[in-house]
């Protein structure tokens, strides 16, 4: 089954919300690259989370969001919540 949100979608959202640059362009395999290494700080993640809520109806609490270290962790949380129909703690699915 296809995941509700894949890496390309997350990449698009990250770039739209927080930009990209040559130094740490989110091209290539970044699934396990920490957000801090990618240059995305807590504000960038909050901005991206707002977009994820608008597009996927998954609302991630700020304190949960700040614990997510990599794109994979973010994808797992969103997709897991949607698939299970039973959101993880700190997550609401519309």
């Amino acid at each position: 089954m296809t995941e509700p949100m894949d890496m390309n979608t997350l990449r698009r959202i990250l770039v739209a919300c927080a930009g990209e640059d040559e130094a740490a362009a989110p091209a290539g395999d970044i699934l396990d690259v920490p957000f801090t290494d990618l240059g995305y700080d807590s504000l960038a993640l909050m901005e991206s989370a707002a977009r994820i809520k608008q597009e996927f109806g998954v609302d991630i609490a700020d304190d949960v969001l700040t614990e997510l270290e990599t794109p994979r962790a973010l994808l797992d949380l969103v997709n897991g919540s949607v698939r299970a129909g039973r959101p993880a703690e700190g997550v609401r699915v519309a």
Partner: peptide
């Protein structure tokens, strides 16, 4: 400007 600064 670096792309990272454009949205902000």
């Amino acid at each position: 400007l670096p792309g990272r600064l454009l949205p902000q």
